[in-house]
């Protein structure tokens, strides 16, 4: 007895994808990519469940695993695994060799054992699923396996409580008020004014672009620490300097044509506004300051 040709085709196509997904899970540098590969493999497995007559499990696989568990993974990746991509360089001597050796040996043994089993015929679920797959499962769960089912309930509650206990941090002292925080900043000599905003060039209004200091260098503080750690900062200071040159040239040309007296008070007012704004606006104002410098 064999399966239908359609199922065979489906198996061979999707099976290869599933293995690729599994390999991707293991081999991808970034945790997000691994998670996505795993999610793909899981969806394919759900399809295989359906093909094997486990309709309920197939749906549950998609809803619970791909839908809930993998999302949980992604949340944690977001919380935790965001600093940098993993290095795939092995640090424990001989670990990779041993792992490959043991894995290969184990896999070969498993496959050899399966080949030895030589199942040439199978029963199929036609009869078992005759009353409906979900009904059949429900009958078993609430009769034969009811005790195990109850225990799983207890397990889930324990897990939920355990997770809360593990992640919960008891507040042991009163939260500092805004005023206290401000006073502490002054006392410790930390950054007193607000942090500089990221670059808000008209063309690059994005959080991953640092603002530029008056001398044209990027202000590191203006970009999120996480992005810095990941190296995902786009530095446009060079570009800005290019622009600066053009601007200077243009302003010279303008000055030659317009004369000097009319522009001066406006420019000085501009500079005052800049200094009041502090470094926060410095990214905004290279043109202005350059303007001032040019005069």
């Amino acid at each position: 007895m064999t399966t239908s040709t359609g199922e065979a085709v489906q198996f061979w196509l999707l099976g290869i994808v599933a293995v690729l997904g599994a390999l991707g899970t293991v081999a991808m540098k970034k945790a997000v990519h691994s998670a996505l590969s795993l999610a793909g493999t899981m969806i394919i497995l759900a399809v295989f469940y359906l093909a094997n007559g486990a309709y309920f499990l197939g749906v549950v696989q998609i809803v619970v695993y791909t839908g809930a568990i993998m999302m949980l993974f992604l949340f944690v990746v977001m919380l935790v695994g965001i600093t940098a991509a993993d290095s795939l360089k092995e640090t424990i001597r001989g670990q990779r060799w041993l792992a490959v050796l043991c894995g290969l040996g184990f896999g070969i043994l498993l496959i050899a054992g399966l080949g030895n089993a030589s199942v040439h015929s199978f029963t199929g679920l036609g009869q078992a699923n005759s009353g409906g797959n979900v009904e059949g499962l429900a009958r078993l769960i609430f009769t034969t396996y009811v005790w195990a089912f109850e225990i799983t309930g207890a397990l889930l509650i324990t897990a939920a409580v355990g997770a809360m206990v593990l992640t919960h941090r008891e507040r042991t002292e009163r939260a500092a008020t805004q005023r206290e925080l401000a006073e502490r900043r002054v006392r410790e000599g930390a950054q007193v004014p607000p942090l500089p905003a990221p670059g808000v060039y008209a063309r690059h209004n994005a959080v991953d672009i640092p603002g530029l200091l008056p001398d044209g260098t990027p202000a590191e503080l203006s970009v999120s620490e996480t992005l810095r750690a990941r190296g995902q900062v786009r530095d446009v200071s060079g570009e800005a300097l290019e622009h600066l040159k053009e601007l200077e040239q243009r302003s010279e040309e303008y000055a030659e044509g317009e004369g000097e007296s009319g522009a001066r008070p406006e420019n000085s007012a501009n500079g005052a506004a800049n200094s009041a704004n502090g470094p926060a606006n410095s990214a905004n104002g290279p043109a202005n300051s350059a303007n001032g410098a040019a005069k």
Binding site: T3, F11, A22, A35, F48, N52, V77, D86
Partner: peptide, 29 residues
């Protein structure tokens, strides 16, 4: 096709997963 192929696939995936546990350092992976 014999459904036993599913079992081979299962063994393969299991082994790949096991190797991943041994090789990767990132706890999430």
């Amino acid at each position: 096709m014999n459904p036993i192929n599913y079992l081979y696939l299962s063994a393969l995936l299991f082994t790949i997963g096991g190797a991943g546990v041994l090789v990767r350092r990132n706890a999430i992976i």
